[in-house]
Write a protein that binds this DNA or RNA. Structure first.
Length: 236
DNA sequence: GCGACAG
DNA sequence: ATCTTGTCGC
């Protein structure tokens, strides 16, 4: 496990990405889809107090049942800057991953891996730091061009940086927007798409992401007191 | 210089 | 990411 570093400024952050990207492993296929465990990671923020909560949820890859989960709380130490997302999220995500009681298997995170201006998005950064196979499944497009994939679940089209394929726009449900899949570390792109489809059986987003999202939001509410006031019921 | 821009 | 009502569709 590589030591975590948070640069003091943007230039330092970009330089560190250029250094660490040499350690990304792209010639492994990754774990076979549907076997072992898969782990979703996500974070939630409280902008008022600069608090961030990360969640890691381990699922059985065959049944999608929860095997283990963990959360971690931290202070926000880096602003959101497109291209530098990892520096904002990774410290707390690492803490959550480290306190898991089960083998994470393949890690699925929000955001990108290779589909990044310096080929070193969150998924790649997390992979290099942990040594784990990691893929990125993002909800919105970023730095690349692509054609709209076909309308059905499983349809895809490549994310292109020039003529280099850096990911896939993948339709996980008929009639919904695609998700954007890219490899982070120690996984192949076709395999990453296969995992994503198996994990997104009932919804647009992978079950890993949905579970981790729900958990870190709940943990944030409990850590920060009341979040947004719930609508008062008719009986109030 | 301007706009776009994962979460 | 987060705030936030109603509304459209199955």
């Amino acid at each position: 496990m590589t030591t975590l570093r948070i640069p003091a400024d943007e230039a330092g952050a970009r330089a560190l990405q250029d250094t660490l990207r040499t350690r990304v492993v792209l010639d492994e296929p990754g774990p076979p889809p549907g076997t072992g465990t898969v782990t979703g990671v996500d974070v939630a923020y409280d902008d008022e107090r600069d608090v961030v909560v990360a969640a890691a949820v381990v699922l059985d890859a065959a049944t999608l049942e929860v095997v283990a989960e963990a959360t971690a709380t931290g202070q926000v130490t880096f602003p959101y800057i497109p291209g530098l997302l990892a520096f904002r999220e990774i410290p707390t995500v690492l803490a959550a991953l480290e306190s898991l009681s089960a083998d994470p298997g393949l890690v699925v995170c929000d955001g990108y891996g290779q589909a990044h201006p310096r080929r070193f998005g969150l998924a790649s950064h997390l992979g290099v730091l942990t040594g784990l196979p990691v893929i990125g499944v993002a909800k919105n497009p970023f730095t690349f061009s692509y054609e709209q994939p076909g309308p059905h679940r499983g349809d895809r089209s490549p994310l292109l940086d020039g003529d280099e394929v850096v990911g896939q726009a993948l339709r996980t449900q008929d009639g919904t927007k695609p998700v954007y899949v890219s490899v982070g570390h120690r996984t192949g792109l076709d395999n990453a798409c296969a995992h994503t489809l198996l994990l997104a059986r009932g919804f647009r987003q992978p079950e890993t992401t949905r579970r981790a999202d729900a958990l870190c939001r709940r943990a944030l509410r409990e850590a920060t007191g009341r979040g947004p006031a719930r609508a008062p019921g008719p009986g109030a």
